[in-house]
Nucleic acid binder design. Structure first.
Length: 933
RNA sequence: GCCCGGGUGGUGGAAUCGGCAGACACGGAGGACUCAAAAUCCUCUGCCCGAGAGGGCGUGCGGGUUCAAGUCCCGCCCCGGGCACCA
């Protein structure tokens, strides 16, 4: 007796999907289906077959191997690039695609501090788990090329690139980096060089390198014995972990001279096919401002300011210095001078007292707080006066934290009439306001920042009155230059890149210090510099009042920190650099290592790099780079900077790394809170009445946002693999909406994608026997048309990353085949080919059962017969006054006159015309006629 | 506050060039098959009025341009993301 509960044995369900997905993944692996050859070197086997094809470099932003593993939001981009890469391969491209791991970083180190487990151990375990989860998706990656930034062989070349940067300087004349030896030769020819000591010469040269040491403020937390990242510091200025006080203190840090490249980083954005918002963010981040520097005379010497509005100089009625500005101490007067107004003193007896109190308060204010808007302006008078160079009159000098030491010169001339912040400060502190730009009639606001004729701007030989802003700027700048009081200048918001971290789990610097304390670069032959083994990763806690130098974890290993080396002048003792590089270092160049992952001679072979990064008439580089918009600035800017240095040094062939960038959206999810504000498992929430939500009989509140463990709304790919298989997950994620838009995850909807694959399977394969059920006949006329339309549309959609509409078109084809109840061979073959990029395991299986040799992924993508794309008749829409009134089937060749006649003859139109004549007829054959009454 | 996205049925979304709004899917309703159910297949499914034929309304809100607006322009509202008190 047969059990009626058992489904047909060859039905495409989760079990069968899981089985054939495992089989095909094993087959691909063994066959090397997705391995792609290089033009030369160890990976060049099979090159001859593909040499003539166009190349395509498809790249994902690589993941951090977190211990939490993946949720279904993570692989969205990876599936997108996989479908795209598979499609390109089927259209004849030589596609390179793989994925690696950005594996240095804080979480592994913190875990090590807590458990004593070596970060390498946890990192490798996490990578293994993530690799398993990703492999299950069936991505067409060349796994031979996968690298992790923590691989010793990879670290070696990260260090090597650092050495290239270190051993370079930026030549402002040629506007590019050049080897440091060329600078040395140039300096040696200058007078006075011979008199310098050896150490002074080195200091001179070091001052020009692209990697240099400078003092920078760090978040030092004695209680934890470590330096903290900004995100580890609370708004109250205490440590996230342990709630210890955190102090901003200067520390000698490695810094990369990215500002030298500001202009090129800005200009070359125009050559890139990137989303405009990302370009805009980079432009704003670089923040180029043009204006002038102006020197104001003061008893403490000239105070230099930068302004974008030199035309308003006559209206500068006071100056403001940042609390950290070095001239503040010299400006502070012994007593409040004559002319000091009550509001200026902050209630203190002397300027010194007032400034000291203000500075103390400012040092407790966090950056975040200082940057927050709408905060009332605070400040205090220094008791010092400066001279406005145009009017010659004295103006008071204030200290206020709305001026930042890190931007411009750390000092401003305040022009309240034309600057909103200065206006607010002037109002609060009873300062003079002089308009130098005439606001429009009826202006009632405060500061006027727009264009208008200059007023109140005349003094003996100089007058700006009546000029517009641009003319006034040019005139005053020329005057400043002539008087030697200033000159035209460009300032950037971009600052040099702080490149060292007081961490264990990062790349050690290939730098040692000699007995004079000067840095010496190790030769490339001594790379890699490996991390010392430590047993205890926990930093030593110190008392709060401890002011000794923070010591990075690498200092823990004394035998590592001190070495005896022969660096060309005999065996000597050196002290190693104890800082490590930031996580950004490894992610700056991984796309180059994918190209040539095992090369021991170079970071990437020249010929291999030229081939894969080569340009098709554009700036060149990676053909498609997909990742989250959260990397719009830092990673993408740092990476472009490294690439440009390597380009200048002729190590890579293109000026830009990523020709085309695409930001995939984030998969969000609903989280639910009960009336106590506690998250309840989202999977257990049911719909209540009137759009409300219920958990366990109690109403709960919905909150849309990210997916996360703590929000109790995480869905892992593993549960979806289990319930439907990987192909269903792929199809679902691609069908949810446009790839670049965020969208909520909804497990309920997946079944639709599963049913699509089931129906496709059922159209081709007999569910009872597993044999193909195709008829060896040509498709009927209607089917042939549907096929052609689908092929054309799906191909276009794949190529344009419109996967959601591609899925819809395939759905229509499958619906047609299901409805016709008959599947001819051409339809079946075509269906398998169309599905190959999207649902590759199912497509391989259909292809094999249809009697073909694998792999379907190596077949050419179908091309539609253009004759079948032309319809015999089209629907002519007939509107009266813009409203749809009738539809008429016409030939596509219908003329405007014919269409108009047909429309007017329509009974509907006749009825509405009611014997009269239309006022006007718009005829747009063959799609539309609009009759205007 | 500024900058960038977005707002279309019960839900996710489609409409790529100013020309039929709502493709496709989820959910829902009904039917076929079945002893019954699951699965599958078929039909319907924006809202309102109407027995029906049909009619009216409809893409966040208010205006405008146009023969014609989801799409273009002006002014608002709401949601999401980003940020720099940048002189």
């Amino acid at each position: 007796m047969s059990d009626p509960h058992v489904a047909p044995k060859a039905r495409y369900d989760a079990a069968l999907a899981g089985e054939l997905e495992a089989d095909w993944q094993a087959w691909w692996e063994q066959d090397g289906t997705w391995e792609v050859p290089n033009p030369s070197g160890p990976l060049s086997q099979g090159w001859a077959e593909v040499a003539g094809r166009p190349k395509a470099y498809v790249l994902d932003m690589f993941p951090y191997p977190s211990g939490a593993g993946l949720h279904v939001g993570h692989p969205l981009g990876y599936i997108g690039t996989d479908v795209y890469g598979r499609y390109l391969r089927m259209t004849g491209c030589n596609v390179i695609h793989t994925i690696g791991y950005d594996a240095f970083g804080l979480p592994a180190e913190q875990y090590a501090v807590e458990t004593g487990q070596h970060p390498r151990v946890t990192t490798e375990a996490n990578i293994a788990n993530m690799r398993r989860q990703l492999k299950r998706l069936g991505l067409a990656h060349d796994h031979r090329r996968a690298v992790a930034t923590t691989d010793v062989a990879y670290v070696r070349w990260t260090q090597w690139i650092f050495l290239q940067i270190y051993n370079s300087w930026f030549d402002p004349e040629q506007h590019r980096a050049r080897p440091i030896a060329q600078l040395e030769a140039k300096l040696a020819a200058e007078p006075g060089w011979a008199e310098l000591s050896e150490a002074d010469r080195r200091r001179r040269v070091d001052g020009h390198r692209l990697a240099y040491r400078a003092n920078a403020l760090v978040n030092w937390c004695p209680g934890l014995g470590t330096v903290l990242a900004n995100e580890e510091v609370t708004v109250e200025g205490r440590s996230d972990r342990g709630n210890f006080p955190v102090y901003r203190r200067p520390l000698t840090q490695w810094t990369l001279r990215i500002t030298a490249y500001a202009d090129r980083l800005l200009a070359d954005l125009d050559t890139l096919d990137w989303p405009e918002p990302v370009k805009l963010m980079q432009r704003n981040w670089i923040g180029r401002s043009t204006g002038a520097t102006v020197a104001f005379a003061s008893p403490a010497g000239p105070i230099e300011v930068f302004t974008t509005r030199p035309d308003t100089l006559f209206g500068a009625t006071f100056m403001v210095l940042a609390p950290e500005h070095p001239l503040v101490d010299e400006l502070v007067a012994d007593a409040w001078p004559d002319g000091t107004r009550a509001a200026w003193t902050g209630g203190h007896a002397t300027p010194a007292e007032a400034v000291a109190a203000y500075r103390a308060a400012a040092s407790h204010t966090t950056d975040q707080d200082r940057m927050s808007d709408q905060r009332t302006k605070t400040g205090v008078f220094t008791g010092g006066w400066a001279t406005n160079p145009t009017t010659g009159g004295p103006i008071p000098v204030f200290v206020a934290d709305y001026v930042l030491m890190g931007y411009g010169t750390g000092a401003i001339m305040a022009v309240p009439a034309q600057d909103e912040r200065d206006w607010a400060f002037a109002e609060a502190y009873d300062l003079d306001i002089v308009r130098t730009v005439q606001p429009p009639e009826g202006w009632e606001g405060g500061a006027f920042t727009g264009d208008g004729p200059a007023v109140n701007s005349t003094r003996t030989a100089l007058s700006l009155d009546g000029m517009g802003v641009d003319e006034a700027k040019a005139t005053i700048t020329a005057w400043l230059e002539q008087e030697g009081r200033g000159k035209g200048a460009v300032t950037y918001r971009l600052r040099d890149w702080l490149f060292s971290r007081q961490r264990y789990w990062g790349e050690p610097f290939p730098i040692v210090y000699d007995d004079e304390g000067l840095p010496v670069a190790l030769p490339a032959s001594m790379l890699p510099v490996e991390l010392p083994e430590l047993d205890d990763f926990a930093p030593r806690s110190r008392p709060d009042n401890d002011t000794s130098e923070p010591e990075p974890p690498l200092g823990r290993s004394q035998e590592w920190a001190h070495v005896e080396l022969d660096l060309g002048d005999g065996l000597k003792r050196y002290r190693r650099e104890l800082n490590t590089m930031p996580q950004w270092a490894g992610s700056c160049w991984y796309y180059l290592r994918y190209l040539d992952p095992t090369n021991e001679e170079r970071f990437v072979d020249r010929e291999v790099e030229r081939y894969w990064m080569g340009s098709g008439g554009t700036a060149g580089g990676v053909d498609l780079y997909v990742g989250g918009v959260e990397h719009a600035v830092l990673h993408l800017l740092y990476s472009r900077f490294w690439h440009k240095v390597l380009f200048d040094l002729e190590e890579v062939s293109t000026p830009e790394p990523f020709q085309r960038l695409f930001n995939q959206g984030m998969i969000g999810a609903a989280a639910y809170l009960d009336d106590r504000g506690v998250y309840v498992p989202a999977a257990e929430v049911a719909d209540g009445p009137d759009g409300t939500f219920v958990h366990d009989g109690q109403p709960v509140r919905r909150q849309l946002g990210k997916m996360g463990k703590s929000l109790k709304n995480s869905v892992t790919p593993d549960e979806i693999y289990e319930a439907y298989g990987a192909d269903t997950l792929r199809v679902y994620e691609m069908s949810m909406g446009p790839l670049d838009m965020g969208r909520p995850w909804n497990t309920r909807d997946i079944v639709g994608s599963h049913r699509l694959l089931q129906r496709a399977w059922r159209a081709v394969v007999d569910e009872d026997t597993g044999a193909p059920r195709v008829v060896d006949e040509a498709p009927d006329a209607a089917t042939a048309k549907v096929l052609a339309r689908t092929v054309a549309a799906v191909g276009a959609d794949y190529g344009a990353l419109r996967f959601n509409t591609a899925v819809a078109k395939i759905n229509e084809l499958v619906n047609h085949l299901t409805k016709s109840g008959r599947c001819d061979r051409e339809s079946a073959d075509t269906l398998a080919l169309l599905l190959a990029p999207l649902a590759p395991h199912l497509a391989e299986e259909l292809w094999r059962r249809l009697g073909h040799e694998p792999s379907v992924g190596r077949q050419p993508f179908p091309v539609a017969d253009p004759a079948l794309l032309v319809d015999d008749t089209v629907t002519l829409v007939v509107q009266v006054n813009g409203k749809l009134r009738d539809r008429i089937e016409v030939t596509p060749q219908v003329t405007a006159e014919e269409a108009e006649a047909l429309a007017l003859a329509s009974p509907k139109v006749q009825e509405l015309l009611n014997g009269g004549a239309p006022r006007k007829v718009i005829s747009r054959p063959p799609s539309l006629v609009n009759v205007v009454l």
